[in-house]
Amino acid sequence: MFEARLLQGGLLKKVLDSIKDIITEGNFDCSPNGLSLQAMDSSHVSLIDILLESEGFEHYRCDRNIPMGLNITNLVKMIKCAGSEDIVTIKCEDKPDNVTFLFESKDNDKISDFEMKTMTIDDEHLLVPDQTYTAVVKMPSAEFQRLCRDMAAIGDTVNISVTKEGVRFSTTGDMGTANITVRPNPSGDQKEEERTEVQITEPVSAGFALRYLNSFTKATPLSPTVTLGMVPNLPIVVEYKIADMGHVRYYLAPKIED
């Protein structure tokens, strides 16, 4: 069986908010290491990779690997019924037809349980290689969110160019063009999460659809910083670390000149 108790139930709401615009269903894989999800959007342009490590839960028991296929829209509806301060317990049997969500208020004066039907989902797992990124940019997540929103007001595609001087975001649309350059500032007086850091072995430049990048920024409440990893002619990775728990990562295929 599987049973996991999460003290900060609000975290689940944030995780679901970060994926609900991209996928409508997914297999949550319960394993002794934790709860994970890998799923692509319907057009197979972007991929979500979530890991919530077992150590991040107050109680975690998983005897064997269990794929828990869930409709994300329905899951959002159910998790919305939990208070943001509630403790959430997720439970299911080894071959589950249903998953139980137990919500306990912080003061222990209200207990609710919801049961949700599972579904069989064809796995479309991809092997994402462990790679060394040519360019890694760490920046405040709110800054990245603002930047993607501003770029999307002008164009559909953003070209991201990373050099050791900084990261340049450029777009073109019917009304004109926009360029925003973010410079690294690691030696300033800012707190760590307010810094922009750039590590590169060689300059990288590629174009990406802003519609997807904007959806990824729904994960902003999960982390004060976001990390972009790029390799020439490969998908970009956009990672939000969840403190003491794991991550939400998005992979996005580039646009390439024919």
Binding site: M40, V45, H125, T157, K255, D258
Partner: peptide, 14 residues
């Protein structure tokens, strides 16, 4: 113009 690639063009099946 640049065309949108799919993830399968880069990542294989496990």
């Amino acid at each position: 113009a640049a065309s949108q690639r799919r993830l399968e063009d880069f990542f294989g099946a496990p």
